[in-house]
């Protein structure tokens, strides 16, 4: 039910028009609304700002008992230089990037295939399959860490990218989202191709997929963000410094740097940067993507 309501904005072209509200005159009420919104926005930006201010201080200024936004000895990029010199941030960024990309690609491929079958093909056992997939949405990943770890040990995959990637490609909720979308594509579009004797695979790749770009993008965005930021499973399945993803690597930095606050904040900001940059450029798509897939469950 929920997904239905939310696939709508991504689907219909009219929703864009609805988003635009008529401009209204500035009244006392609207000024109050603006003020409250602005206070909230400032509160929400403070942690970023404070981290940035700290990261550009010298360690001595950062740890000075008298707290100030502007350091007495001026701003410096020393902490960033230091982090780049002896840190693993670039390596971890790369690890995060390729594992998240692999997870996204595999998830999209296998989910779209099964979603198409569930949406279009009448095969024996389909109802059972559908029920099982929907039921599995309820399984919380933390419940699986113990057996999954044991399984990865048995497969000799601990401390490899495989361990990070493979268990993260199962997103039953995304299958459900895709199926709902496929259901809405008119069947007539396929009829002609069927007449030509086109195979299911051809129909899928040449008709369904091109029509589904918005939903595929939405699912890709959602899966990528959750893979990029996932902590628990990569934390369980990898230990070696060279294989860690950004969030897990960052956890080890705290102990290595100890009380070097400027370096801690510089590392955190560097880790935050990629997705924030992506967000600035693709704000519309990301917001749409999250709103579309969000209610299907995480």
């Amino acid at each position: 039910m929920a997904t239905q309501t939310l696939t709508r904005p991504a689907l219909s072209s009219t929703s864009a028009a609805k988003l635009r509200q008529p401009r209204k005159k500035m009244t006392a009420g609207r000024a109050a609304v603006l003020a409250v919104a602005a206070i909230l926005a400032v509160l929400w930006l403070v942690p970023f700002a404070w981290a940035t201010a700290t990261a550009f201080k010298s360690e001595a200024d950062a740890a000075a008992p008298k707290i100030s936004w502007i350091p007495p000895s001026g701003f410096t990029a020393d902490a960033f230089v230091k982090v780049f010199q002896d840190g693993n941030i670039p390596l971890w960024t790369w690890n995060s990037l390729y594992t998240s990309a692999a997870i996204t690609v595999i998830t999209l491929a296998i989910s779209a295939l099964v979603a198409y079958a569930l949406s279009r093909i009448d095969f024996r056992g389909k109802k059972v399959l559908m029920t099982v997939i929907i039921a599995s949405i309820m399984i919380p990943p933390p419940v699986l860490i113990i057996p999954l770890f044991y399984q990865m040990v048995a497969l000799h995959m601990i401390d490899t990218s495989w361990a990070i990637i493979l268990p993260q490609v199962i997103h039953p909720a995304m299958v459900f989202v895709l199926k709902k979308f496929f259901d809405q594509i008119p069947r007539e579009l396929e009829e002609a191709a069927v007449m030509d004797g086109a195979s299911r695979m051809r129909i899928f790749t040449q008709i369904i997929l091109p029509l589904s770009r918005p939903i595929l993008a939405a699912v890709a965005i959602f899966v990528f963000i959750s893979a990029w930021n996932n902590f628990l499973w990569p934390f369980i399945s990898t230990n070696d410094g060279s294989i860690l993803t950004l969030p897990v690597g960052l956890q080890t930095i705290k102990s290595a740097y100890g009380i070097q606050y400027a370096q801690n904040m510089a590392s955190a900001l560097l880790a935050a940067l990629p997705l924030i940059l992506v967000f600035l450029f693709f704000q519309r798509q990301i917001i749409k993507g999250v709103a579309t897939t969000g209610l299907a469950g995480t």
């Binding site: 770890f149 601990i158 401390d159 230990n239 410094g241």
Partner: peptide, 23 residues
């Protein structure tokens, strides 16, 4: 590689050894 003293270190060391690719 420096990990935090106490349980975080010993937990990770045991997990890495069990996994077969420890330091």
């Amino acid at each position: 590689t420096v990990l935090a003293w106490g349980p975080p270190y010993y937990t990770k060391l045991a997990m890495a050894s069990a996994g077969g690719r420890p330091p």
